[in-house]
Computed example of a mutant assay.
Amino acid sequence: MKFFVCLLSVLVLSCGIGAAQGTTKSKAPPKPSAKVEAVAKTMTADQKAQLLNLLNQGDDAALMAIPGIGEVRAAAIKKARPYSGVTDVLGVSGIGEGTFAGMVEYARAGFKKPEKKAAAKPAP
């Protein structure tokens, strides 16, 4: 009986240690390309801070206001939090240089949704 209790204890402890080790590992964000770095440098310090705040604390609606971000990408952005810099978002699946450039343009425009162009009226 002692053997089974000891065996069970060892199994429980090893599973607990393995689970604890799995939660401490964090995936380092990829090193941004020179193009991404150049795009990021077009933002002011205030714009970077506001975008970083949005990425770290924004709700679904705020994230989906960013051009190119829908429900799936917003959920992925939230799951990958926290971010230490705006380029860290490139580690999120589905976020590439193009989407990041759209985020930067959104920040540079004052976080305003781009206005949709009215449909052209057909000629009479």
Rank of each mutant, 00 (worst) to 15 (best):
M1N: 08
L8Q: 09
G18E: 06
I77L: 09
K48D: 12
A76R: 14
E115W: 00
A45C: 01
I95Q: 06
P29L: 03
R81P: 00
E37A: 12
C6W: 15
K41M: 08
I17T: 09
F111Q: 02
V39H: 01
S26T: 13
G94H: 03
M43C: 09
S84T: 14
K113Q: 13
A38K: 15
S93V: 10
K112P: 04
A107M: 03
P82L: 08
G22T: 10
R73W: 05
M43D: 01
A123V: 15
A20S: 13
F100S: 03
K25F: 14
C6T: 15
I69G: 01
A119T: 14
P122Q: 11
G22V: 10
S33F: 08
D60I: 03
V39C: 01
V89E: 01
A80L: 03
L54D: 06
V104F: 05
S33Q: 08
P30Y: 07
A20Y: 13
A20V: 12
I69H: 03
K116V: 15
L55C: 04
C6Y: 15
L7N: 06
K35A: 14
G58S: 06
Q21V: 11
P32V: 07
G70K: 09
E37T: 15
D59K: 08
G102I: 03
K112R: 11
M103H: 05
S9Q: 09
A61L: 09
G96S: 04
A45H: 03
K78Y: 01
A80K: 07
S84M: 10
F3W: 12
F3Y: 12
G91S: 12
A75L: 09
A123S: 14
D60E: 13
S9N: 08
V36K: 00
A118V: 12
G68S: 13
A45M: 06
A28F: 04
N53S: 14
K113L: 15
G58R: 00
C15M: 15
D59H: 00
E71M: 08
T99K: 08
L63R: 05
T23S: 11
S33D: 07
A109C: 06
R73I: 15
K35M: 07
P32T: 07
L90T: 01
V89L: 03
C6K: 12
K31Q: 13
I66K: 02
V12C: 10
A49C: 01
M103A: 06
T99P: 04
A62T: 10
K25I: 13
T87E: 11
P124C: 14
D60P: 04
I77V: 14
A80D: 09
S33N: 00
G110P: 03
V5Y: 12
T44Q: 06
L52A: 08
L63E: 04
P122A: 14
R73K: 15
V36R: 02
M103V: 07
E115Y: 02
K112L: 13
G91P: 04
R81H: 01
V89G: 02
G94M: 04
G70P: 03
S9K: 08
K121M: 10
G94S: 05
P122V: 13
K35V: 12
P30H: 02
K79N: 11
L55H: 00
G94Q: 00
Y106E: 00
A38D: 09
V12I: 11
L51R: 06
G85C: 13
K121D: 08
